[in-house]
Amino acid sequence: MLSKRLIVCLDVRDRKTTKGVKFKENIDLGDPVEMAERYYREGADELVFYDITASAEGRPIDIDMVREVARRIFIPFSVGGGVRHLDDMRRVLLAGAEKVSVNSLAVRNPEIIAHGARAFGSQCMVLGMDVLRVGESPAIPSGYEVVVKGGRERTGLDALEWARRAERLGAGEICLNSIDADGTKAGYELTITSRLSKAVGIPVIASGGAGAPEHIYRVLTEGAADAALIASMVHYGAYTIAQIKKEVAARGVRMRLRW
């Protein structure tokens, strides 16, 4: 039986880890490579790096950073933000990342998922999606709409339909971030996470809202997520990875406890 994964997310800008609430104010938290190494040693199952300004600034991802991370950590990690085309994906993967994540690029050009999956395999293709609770309507039957640009721009895509379509196109995994929950530390958005995870046959990573081990427990059980993404819970030292895992495992969820 698989263990549920605890994934640490590092938002990176200008070679520094940063953390913002709802993509607004940001503060620097440290060197992403050193932080990555620390989380690796402390038992993170996987890491995610988002170059949060590459996309807006129209520049490629910091490949040197990816390379440096790959020299120092020996667990899977994915890279997202600033992926513009197949060549960017190739560079990220060749630099040592296990997976590459596309979000707004896939909204603009869904075929990029198929192209990436054909070129590098589905297991490398992560679809990142930000969703906003908008209420059910004929256009958005699930009541959750896919948004881009940190929630500032709506796409007209229904979250469940988009997830199923991405799976058909060849996405190997979906990272579902709730804009409503993100930054609140009040818990993940369990409704859409559970519905989406059950609607697809690929693993779903829940993101947005983690503030306590209880939230992680709930999203991995009620939320039916395969993995939970955390950031501020460990970035500010409120919890260690081992502490979170032990607490969640003690309630019956299988976690990787030895490394």
Partner: peptide, 8 residues
Amino acid sequence: KIPHMGWN
């Protein structure tokens, strides 16, 4: 889910 992906 297939693939079997993750820690086991």
